[in-house]
Design a protein around this nucleic acid. Sequence first.
DNA 1: CAAAAATAAGTAAACGTTTTCTATCCTTCA
DNA 2: TGAAGGATAGAAAACGTTTACTTATTTTTG
Lengths: 333, 333
Amino acid sequence: MSKIHQVAALAGVSIATVSHVINNTRFVSDETRKRVQAAMEEIGYQPNALARSLRRGETKTLGVILPDSSNPYFAEIGRGLELLAFNEGYSIILCNSENDAEIEHQYAEVLSKKQVDGIFFVGTGERPETLLTLLKHNLPLVVMMRDFGDVQVDTVQSDNYQGGTLATRHLLDAGHTRIACIMGPSGLTLSSQRVNAFKDTLNAAGITPDDSMILQGDFHAESACAITRQLLKRPDPPTAIFACNDLMAIGVICAAAELGRRVPGDLAVIGFDNIQLGNFSVPRLTTVAQPKDELVQTATRYMLERIADHTLPPRKSVIPTNLVIRQSCGHLV
Amino acid sequence: MSKIHQVAALAGVSIATVSHVINNTRFVSDETRKRVQAAMEEIGYQPNALARSLRRGETKTLGVILPDSSNPYFAEIGRGLELLAFNEGYSIILCNSENDAEIEHQYAEVLSKKQVDGIFFVGTGERPETLLTLLKHNLPLVVMMRDFGDVQVDTVQSDNYQGGTLATRHLLDAGHTRIACIMGPSGLTLSSQRVNAFKDTLNAAGITPDDSMILQGDFHAESACAITRQLLKRPDPPTAIFACNDLMAIGVICAAAELGRRVPGDLAVIGFDNIQLGNFSVPRLTTVAQPKDELVQTATRYMLERIADHTLPPRKSVIPTNLVIRQSCGHLV
DNA sequence: CAAAAATAAGTAAACGTTTTCTATCCTTCA
DNA sequence: TGAAGGATAGAAAACGTTTACTTATTTTTG
């Protein structure tokens, strides 16, 4: 690897001048500039970003900590963040916590040591230990899709309660009264918000929610398969299922097919997230769309603003969801 | 952020001693060590990895360049690499080239400037410009799932020809003779290998491949939907389709359902990759599994070995695939 | 025409570590 | 008792940049 002093020597100038040519940070005569550029070209010089970062105090690198990037929803979020970051000159270090608080914590330390300029954080749970450590290091932090209550931190999430309402009402409007709900892991605010919306909306419609029809999955397809098999074997099976994410909704559809039930004929299914593949399930999945682009854009904006000014007061953004009507609940309109 | 000299001052020792305590790199008396550790604890010291990397000449960071991490197949690969890397003390900078050679090239430069210790490379195509640049910088490089012919570089891929044979034979064995193939983007060796295997296997079975039944998709579901619609509207529709990846196979199933064809009754479908969601399509997808774990493990091993010894001769690994029989081709056995 | 101002570029400190080289203090033993 | 050697730890250079400060030269101006 060639170094700046080699460029300087070859061009017959000081390293300061080379640096100024590279960064356009003070006037350099045309003639000198040309010589420097020629020299850089000749030896294929590339500035060492480590040295630059050490000196400048910024790495142009952001961390993303999330539970599992092979989950399509997180994959899409991660990809969105990466794209926007790239356009702003940042790279992304991707950290899968594997839903393990210990790994999450270790990664937080690694990122902090590597001096990333900020971290997008999707916690495995909502215990704030890791978060607080990070905040103590005074690292720009944007929490996504998690709710750490009154911790003072920039937060971006979608309106899960409103989304849950949308889903439930959609099922109700289609005439269903025996509706099951497969929730996500407990301990996540977004889970309880979706379920609370489900119950409240049912109540508002004069239907008492049946607790035996509200079951806990883990946001993966397999868990929803198993739960659906149980549900459909009951003497009083539900006619509709609200799965609290798309992966589980796909699991529901799969299990229903396995038992010979037709979707939406025998069983309506609605999901949550609007992952890309939901558009290609059989039948195509009706779902509550989390406004992915907006989530990602807002998170990125918060991040850039906070990097620019650490003293900004924390902001919280709750973005409304919208219904994507496809086939898995039948056609209403 | 606290610095090593603050620890040293607090503990009443030199910064050299602190460094040696941190890295266990020379004997330090128990008493001194305790003092240093206490001091680190007290001020919450964390070593600055930039400074360390600059001095040591290694960043414990690897780059991954791939076309699109929101494609489930790449997401799973990326996640696998990240997991193994983490266990070896490395972090991953994730770079989506968005299938754009220009972005790919820019990212290669960024990674090189950031002094990553190596790069896992899944090119957008197989033109070797970016690759050669990277090799010129003498960066440890492992090419995955792409074939750059005689470029001297570590390469890990699955046996696409063998996989294509497996898929075609499976369809043949089920009695199909009118078989279509939806291939991936041209210009990718893996595409042509899979298709060549398809043709060869058909020929070997005494069936002349019908070129009008070999169509080009783009590895995304939508393209396969469109192609399948065309295919099934023909007067002589195929009774089976070999989709060259799972995403397209899912698109095929979706389009078939849309036209009221039953899978596998009216149309058998086989995919390639074995992505997780293939296990939850309706019907569950029969597919050729790329040995993801083995690909990722081999790639990681190559990487670590090359980092340890830059002079190693380049190695190429071709890993056999295996058939995962589920439901989309009917039950044979 | 001398002094002030403007122009162009060089010198060296700083970023926060690691690591080589060196120093001090004890023991030990001839 | 004095030199050798072991045990412990400090001083300073090095990693490759950026940038504040300084200098040399030329131009402008009163």
